[in-house]
Design a protein around this nucleic acid. Structure first.
Length: 482
RNA sequence: GGCGACGUACCCAAGUGGUAAGGGAGAGGUCUGCAAAAUCUUUAUGCGCCGGUUCGAAUCCGGCCGUCGCCUCCA
């Protein structure tokens, strides 16, 4: 198996990835809180981790990918004063919380499907794992890492000396200049809730040894990740903005409770900005994936996201997106060209070596912390080389043609996920009116032969307006739906 | 105020010590009746600014300027 290097946020270094169990990889990624439609930030995050999963599989790992659905406990505000996001949305839409959860969970998966993000193997819901969360909380109480006050249970940060090891903060720093309001119940302002007492206004609440309530947000990820992946497990992923406090708290809870390492490699993807400014719920400038897909095809969005590294911030601007759209189109055009080349057994050149070199180069880039921009550069270099070759001699051995199509499907398709069936079938010739198109092209050939270019160009122009592009080549005309 | 990133051509974006990938846009050539597609050439003696280390720095160190993130909900 090839050596894969991953930047580990915990050590702030690239490290060789060595999975806990040879040939297997367990990965947990913080999933969405389903109280609204997914936005471009989700797209970047889940596409980034989709690449991780796809590439691990490509390398031969058997991957178990767990990504939670947060449907309870995530508050709108400071952990002591806020409302439950789901509950709040339920009130404003006058629906049951679980209706909200269903609606936005389905919406989330629909968007992810459109972006060709593979579904996780397990999508556990927080509300479906209350016992596991209670158990972890209980364990922390028993071991003295937590304390109960008035039906609330808090993690005692002062008992866990490693608190801050992921985010590089010290508990002392947290006291200075902090915006955490002092809650008299808590022994230390940095202590965080494992279990919250629920007032009557809370629709979602469960019985617990400390009265009726609901779990704190951080505890779900600790409980569900280790339930399905064990502890320790290989990779924990999430958005950079969750490094603190969310991930820091996950580590504290899990490692304090069991005395074992929680996750071995931490991966954080960077944020999305829109025209240079942060895309934030509070700023009201966030673009949903659904909105973005009104103007752009999903694969153009995916291509654009992959054209920058996952640890770099990405700015969505019209110019950049247009460039992405065109770049992606170039790959499709090439794939079509290869598919349409007429195989010739007497082809002089064999491509086995160059195809295999290409695949190795492609893999090498991704082995370096999933460097998708470089991998794409390898793809484009290869395309240029092949195009140049076919411009001189378009005879291609059938074995090479199959090999070429295969390697593109494996790399651009299976690993980068840029060739979903929808794209391939959409771009294929045929369809109900292909006969009509052929007739039209034939007539146009006659016009051109008679040098009636005015009329021939008019037909081409009209078709262009109908999103059908005509290309006149030496062997005749071709058409393509745009 | 604390912690942390980043600043590369007209735009996007790789590159962490050895002499600036890739995509888009622009210019010119090939092909074409013309387009489109493809292809070739070309567009940063320079990588925010100023110092330093080094035979050699976009890459390391220090200072400054600027942008952004986290510390409060966010992927």
């Amino acid at each position: 198996m090839k050596k894969l290097f991953i930047y580990n946020s915990l050590t702030r270094r690239k490290e060789e990835f060595i999975s806990l169990h040879e040939g297997f990889a367990g990965i947990y990624v913080c999933g969405p809180t389903v109280y609204g439609h997914a936005h471009l930030g989700h797209a970047k995050s889940y596409i980034s981790f989709d690449i991780v999963v796809r590439f691990l599989r490509h390398l031969g790992y058997k991957v178990r990918y767990v990504q939670n659905i947060t449907d309870v406990g995530h508050l709108t505000d400071d952990a002591d004063a806020g409302e439950d996001k789901i509950g709040k949305q339920a009130q404003s839409e006058r629906l049951q919380p679980m209706e909200i959860v269903e609606t936005y969970t389905r919406s989330f998966f629909a968007d992810m499907d459109a972006l060709n993000v593979l579904r996780p193997d397990i999508s556990p819901r927080a509300s479906g794992h209350i016992p596991e969360q209670l158990e972890l909380t209980q364990m922390l109480l028993e071991k003295g890492f937590a304390y109960e006050v008035n039906g609330n249970v808090y993690f005692d940060v002062s008992k866990y000396s490693a608190y801050g090891k992921l985010s590089g903060r010290s508990v002392a720093d947290l006291l200075e200049g902090t915006r955490i309001e002092v809650n008299t119940e808590k022994r230390h302002p940095a202590d965080f809730a494992l279990w919250k007492k629920a007032g009557p206004e809370h629709i979602m609440q469960w019985n617990s040894p400390w009265g009726s309530g609901f779990p704190g947000w951080h505890v779900e990820c600790s409980a569900m990740s280790t339930k399905y992946l064990g502890q320790p497990f290989d990779i924990h992923g999430g958005g950079l903005e969750n490094t603190f406090p969310h991930h820091e708290c996950e580590i504290a809870q899990s490692e304090a409770a069991t005395g074992k390492t929680f996750a071995r490699y931490w991966m954080h993807n960077n944020m999305v900005t829109v025209n240079g400014v942060k895309m934030g719920k509070s700023l009201g400038n966030f673009i949903t994936i659904h909105q973005a897909m009104e103007n752009l095809e999903p694969m153009a969005i995916r291509f654009f996201i992959l054209s920058s590294h996952y640890r770099s911030p990405l700015d969505f601007s019209d110019d950049a997106l247009t460039a992405g759209q065109k770049g992606f189109q170039k790959i499709l055009t090439f794939l079509r060209r290869v598919t349409e080349l007429v195989p010739a057994t007497d082809a002089g050149i064999r491509l086995e070596q160059v195809v295999s070199d290409y695949q190795v180069a492609f893999e090498n880039e991704l082995c370096d912390d999933f460097n998708t921009p470089k991998a794409l550069a390898v793809v484009f270099d290869f395309i240029r080389e092949m195009n140049s070759l076919f411009d001189q001699d378009d005879r291609l051995n059938p074995v090479d043609q199959a090999g070429l199509i295969n390697v593109l499907r494996r790399t651009v398709g299976d690993v980068l996920g840029l060739l979903p069936d929808a794209v391939l079938s959409n771009k294929e010739q045929g369809g109900d009116f292909s006969g009509v198109m052929e007739l039209l092209l034939e007539l146009r050939q006659i016009l051109r032969r008679e040098k009636n270019f005015a009329l021939a160009d008019q037909i081409r122009q009209k078709l262009t307006e109908l999103k059908i592009e005509i290309k006149d080549t030496a062997d005749g005309s071709r058409w393509e739906k745009k």
